[in-house]
Simulated assay, not measured.
Amino acid sequence: MKVMLVDDSKTMRNIQKGILAQLGYSEIEEAADGLDALSKVGAFQPELLLVDWNMPNMDGLTFVKKYREQGHKTPIIMVTTEAEKSRVVEAIKAGVNNYVVKPFTPDVLGGRIKETLERVQAA
């Protein structure tokens, strides 16, 4: 499965890559912000995106809106420090399929990925 990690923190992308590797995902593309991600999604064709909210150039919420406007249905999990309920609701309205608050454990991220993919396949 092809997964795109969109986060301005190289360390966070490395943590996510390690967890994804443990889960058996090896096709991973990285983007440092929303603009970088938009320039790469067409060629990479991800089957899942893990997107941070707070990034320079283009934040995660703006990226999600632009990506959805292009007609993409790919599942998106917002992985962020933004934990307020209003922010979660805002992200879901923008088209996010699931939400993980940092810091997270490998079990939490793995569980959300599994849950998200099961929900999308069932729909």
Rank of each mutant, 00 (worst) to 15 (best):
K73C: 08
Q70D: 12
P75G: 03
T81K: 14
M78G: 09
K73W: 07
A83S: 15
P75D: 05
G71P: 08
E82P: 08
K66F: 02
A83K: 11
V89N: 15
G95Q: 04
A91H: 11
I92M: 10
K93Y: 00
V64Y: 10
I77M: 09
P75T: 05
R87S: 11
V79F: 13
K73V: 08
K85T: 13
K93H: 02
V88L: 12
S86N: 13
E82T: 05
G95S: 01
I92E: 07
K85D: 13
P75R: 09
T74I: 10
G71T: 03
Q70A: 11
I77P: 10
V88K: 15
I77R: 08
K65R: 11
P75W: 05
I77A: 14
E69C: 02
Y67C: 06
E90V: 06
G71L: 04
K85S: 11
E82Y: 10
T62W: 01
F63R: 01
T74D: 08
M78K: 07
R68K: 00
R87C: 07
K93G: 00
I92P: 01
V89G: 13
I76A: 10
K93A: 02
R87A: 14
T62C: 03
Y67W: 08
K85Q: 15
T80W: 02
S86C: 14
P75N: 04
A83H: 13
A94T: 00
V89H: 15
G71E: 03
T62G: 09
K65F: 01
E84D: 15
E69K: 08
V88M: 05
K85L: 14
T74M: 10
A83I: 12
T80C: 02
R68N: 00
V89Q: 15
K66V: 07
K73N: 15
I77K: 04
K65P: 03
Q70I: 05
K66N: 03
I77N: 06
E69T: 09
A83Q: 12
E69R: 06
T81Q: 11
I92G: 02
I76P: 03
K93R: 02
K65E: 07
E82D: 12
G71A: 03
V79N: 12
P75S: 05
R68G: 00
A94Y: 00
H72G: 01
M78W: 10
E69D: 14
S86D: 14
E90W: 01
I92C: 11
Q70K: 09
V89L: 15
V64H: 10
A91N: 05
E90K: 03
V79D: 13
I92F: 11
E82W: 08
F63S: 06
A83L: 13
A91C: 06
K93F: 01
K66I: 04
I76D: 06
T80G: 04
T74C: 14
E82S: 04
S86A: 14
G71D: 03
M78V: 12
V64L: 14
Q70S: 04
V88R: 11
E90A: 08
P75Q: 07
G71Y: 03
M78R: 07
K93P: 00
G95E: 06
V64Q: 11
H72S: 02
E69Q: 12
E90S: 08
E84F: 09
K93T: 04
R87T: 11
K85E: 13
